[in-house]
Write a protein that binds this DNA or RNA. Structure first.
Lengths: 209, 209
DNA sequence: CCAATAATTGAACATTGTTCATTTTATGCT
DNA sequence: AGCATAAAATGAACAATGTTCAATTATTGG
């Protein structure tokens, strides 16, 4: 058997393995998307993925591992969605507003997935793996990068903290409004609130400077 | 047996029942305080409370019921702590800042309890009972009432939304910073950020008006 | 075609929350 | 005091769930 044939065989093996991983991943993703983290069961995932319960643990270390992989994908989507339509924006305040609205839309349209990212806690208080926290930070950096470009006069560390604060604030406003235990306002009203909030904050910043 | 004797007997019964409830409550409270919601087990609570596993379900409908009762207590504490030192404050901006800082301190000093309030989700997506959502709203109203007094010129609904937005933002800033998956800054730096944030927002409001 | 290796399986285990028949305790009446 | 009734407490048993692993099946290389 020559090298090419060997490669094909190896690829087949890998493809099979990754096909299993893919199927398990897809099943978990869909379950989380539809029922949220609360409704996630290993046996359901295995059934949906068309494999045995044991194979699930062959593909992923445990449910936490699988969930983090799904969340990782959601972070990518979040990054993509949230930073879209940002290239042509040259006004810093308008950019902030657009970021906030994009974020809100993502949270509304992917509520369960979004909740999974921010609501998941590791079993037995296990540590979150480094690759995941790194991706979280990378996502955040990518999102704020258009803003750093818009305000090159700011010290980068300063700008980072600034945008992080604003991001956290926007996150809080959306989170509280979407949580069942608090009174909620309709999406269009929230959007108005959010825009007003970001504009108000931006105006406050201008005074300061 | 006369009425007084009857009353005593009845009271003894009730006291016993409420003593059990109290013991179970205290045990759950301490467990959540020390290990968070993740480490909460029915058997541990029963052992700590000095009763059998079954008795736990005699005192409370289920774990959700027990947790909500603990969270209810935490909400009371939160209200107490957060709205302390507010009576003598006559400057609206300073009052907002103080609210935020009080909130931050509470979150830091009672992290697991605070997380329990905002991180708990009902089993099987059961509905949150009315008494709990009502208390949540009442707590929120009580917290913002000093502000409504300070700005009587504002329409009450307007002021409510305004403060709610600010509260949510502050909540988000603190939450994101305290979550393990994000880069955190030390408490004193967070406090500076928070104060700056509230002041900036307040300044933005003044421009607008 | 066979031996060796890898992957798959699902039964079994451990840990949970929850229930309920049984036992224990308390109560009220004579 | 003693007894009958009611209330409360108990923990064994059940169901659901994440996880493991010995046994089985499939794949690979010669």
């Amino acid at each position: 058997m020559n090298n090419v044939q060997l490669l094909v065989k190896v690829m087949k093996q890998d493809e099979k393995r990754s096909l299993l991983k893919q199927n398990v991943f897809d099943a978990a993703y869909k379950r989380i998307e539809q029922d949220g983290l609360v409704g996630l069961r290993a046996r359901d995932i295995a059934k949906d993925a068309g494999c045995s319960l044991g194979s699930l643990y062959n593909a992923y270390q445990d449910l936490d591992d699988l969930i983090l992989n799904v969340n990782s994908r959601v972070l990518e989507m979040l990054k993509e969605t949230i930073s879209s339509n940002m290239e042509d924006e040259e006004n810093a305040e308008a950019a902030l507003v657009r970021l906030a609205v994009n974020y809100m839309n993502f949270a509304y349209e992917n509520y369960n997935l979004w909740s999974s990212v921010f609501g998941h806690t590791m079993q037995d208080n296990a540590a979150i793996p480094d690759w995941y926290t790194e991706q979280t930070n990378a996502t955040f950096l990518a999102v704020i990068s258009p803003l750093l470009k818009l305000r090159p006069e700011l010290d980068e560390a300063e700008a980072f903290i600034l945008v992080r604060t604003l991001f956290s604030a926007v996150h809080g406003i959306i989170t509280i409004n979407l949580q069942e235990r608090f009174i909620s306002i309709p999406k269009d009203m929230l959007q108005i609130q959010l825009i007003e909030f970001v504009q108000t904050y931006a105006k406050g910043l201008q005074i300061k400077v």
